[in-house]
Amino acid sequence: MAEDPKTPYEPRIVAFLCKWCSSAGSDLAGVSRIQYPANATPITVPCSGSVSPQYILTAFRKGADGVLVSGCHLGDCHYLEGNYLARRKLFLVKELLEFIGLEPERFRMSWVSAAEGAKFAQVITDFVADLRPLGPQDKLQGQRP
């Protein structure tokens, strides 16, 4: 993924959004016409608890500059405890990525409900703002296209 020197750097975010809350939240941000950066590629997953650490590693290894996992607020999980399990599992992923020297800003988690379109827009805006000064993520990225 060669960067065109003429175009300014735009961070690319892979966002794993849970089907029940955050995905609906991003929908609400859209239908409410809230303006936010278009840097995130949303991937709808059944539950934040279904996000395997492998998804996150692979996103980084394929060149994502940031990865966001977003799910329902605690207690609101459609599967009752999926987001609690996600919180524990992805905490370890975050610690491990920081441990090997990836910038801590590159991996982020948020709880966004279906009614929080404005919060979703804010999460993405903040994330892009934090990623921009870091520049492209080239640590975990592979050589393959």
């Binding site: 650490p53 492998q54 590693l57 692979t58 290894r61 370890l92 992923v93 491990l96 990525l97 090997i100 975990l140 990225q141 592979g142 050589q143 393959r144």
Partner: peptide, 17 residues
């Protein structure tokens, strides 16, 4: 390769957590 090696070792560390 570096990227695959990182994938391997981090996966192993997480599977062993």
């Amino acid at each position: 390769s570096r990227s695959d090696n990182i994938g391997y070792h981090l996966t192993r560390a997480l599977h062993l957590a």
